[in-house]
């Protein structure tokens, strides 16, 4: 089976390669350099958009570093003459610590649930011949289309009925459920790339189904597990919808909700509010510095390419 498939693949690969080299010769003959002149229009667009992104980001950092009275009198985008970290102290003193901890708890448990459920599921989907598994996978794929916003009323009903309202568990459960389809999809497509021969060779050597998971599946799918973990973590860290409708007390408040409440609480104390905004984004921005590639593949995991 494998040898049959290989042959046409090789020929299709050969055709563009052949054309390509022929094209290269022709190009050289007409004196065209493969390195083109820079694309000016697109470059200008990119530069303009970089500006649109950078200016408000600069604004929040700059404004979070001035005292309240300096903020009221400063020139719009001028760098503060007397920068201070006092606003960060104010934000941290206003319950930010607890919100940060709550968000961390929600994120860690959501990622754990998603990985613990999705990895065995993807393993079964990619290997099992059971029709039930196939049906379940179709259900998940259809489930990709369920918008979380549209089901907040029944979710509120379910979470209150199982007595998880105003608890972090109440946020974790639906957040994990809505991350599952993408997680299963990404993991399944990566597990399908593991050659059948490896499973068979290891089975012959006496590996059980469970052992295969730990010695073959997990090591071979490490990068897609990272992708799924990052995707789930960012969703949980940044989520507002479920915390908004499923919690109410201050002790169960997460960062996103806390930011929104800060806005009412601080009134016109914009520097403190903006310090809180910066603080809320800091952990993920730090991750971005160290693992840009993983973070980007995690963020786009939902696009299902």
């Amino acid at each position: 089976m494998t040898t049959d498939v290989k042959t046409p693949d090789d020929t299709t690969d050969a055709v563009p390669a052949g054309r390509s080299s022929r094209a290269h010769t022709a190009l050289r003959r007409v004196g065209w350099n493969t390195r083109q002149r820079p694309n000016l229009l697109a470059g200008l667009l990119a530069l303009a958009w970089a500006f649109v992104i950078a200016v408000p980001l600069y604004y929040i950092i700059q404004s979070s570093l001035v005292t309240r009275s300096d903020y009221l009198s400063k020139t719009f985008l001028a760098w503060p003459t007397r920068p201070t970290l006092k606003n960060y102290q104010t934000a941290l003193d206003s319950g930010f610590n607890r919100y940060l901890l709550n968000t961390a708890v929600v994120t860690v448990f959501t990622v754990a649930i998603v990985l613990v459920l999705a990895i065995p599921a993807a393993y079964a989907i990619s290997r099992s011949r059971s029709r039930f598994v196939g049906r379940g996978f179709s259900m998940m794929l259809l489930g990709l289309a369920i918008p979380a916003q549209a089901v907040i009323v029944p979710l509120y009903l379910i979470i209150t009925r199982i007595d998880q309202y105003d608890k972090l568990t109440g946020i974790i459960l639906p957040t994990a459920a809505f991350s599952l389809p993408v997680a299963v999809l990404v993991l399944t497509s990566s597990l399908r790339d593991i050659p059948r021969e490896l499973y068979e060779a290891m089975t012959l050597d006496g590996a059980t189904v469970t052992r295969l998971l730990f010695t073959l599946v997990l090591p071979m799918s490490r990068s897609s597990i990272t992708t799924v973990g990052v995707y789930t973590a960012i969703g949980a860290w940044n989520g507002l919808l479920f915390p908004l409708i499923l919690t109410q007390s201050d002790s169960q408040r997460v960062l996103t909700l806390g930011l929104w409440k800060f806005q009412g609480q601080f009134g016109t104390d914009f520097p403190a509010l903006l310090a809180a905004v910066v603080l809320s984004g800091l952990p993920i921005l730090l991750l971005y510095l160290f693992g840009r590639r993983q973070l980007i593949s995690g963020v786009t995991a939902g696009a299902g390419k």
């Binding site: 459920l117 999705a118 065995p120 599921a121 393993y123 079964a124 989907i125 290997r127 099992s128 011949r129 059971s130 039930f132 598994v133 379940g136 996978f137 259900m139 998940m140 599952l180 299963v184 499973y199 068979e200 089975t203 059980t208 189904v209 998971l213």
Partner: peptide, 13 residues
């Protein structure tokens, strides 16, 4: 003996 059964996927579903 060779393949994970439906049980593996059941919790997620």
């Amino acid at each position: 003996d060779r393949r994970p059964g439906a049980v593996w996927a059941l919790p997620a579903f």
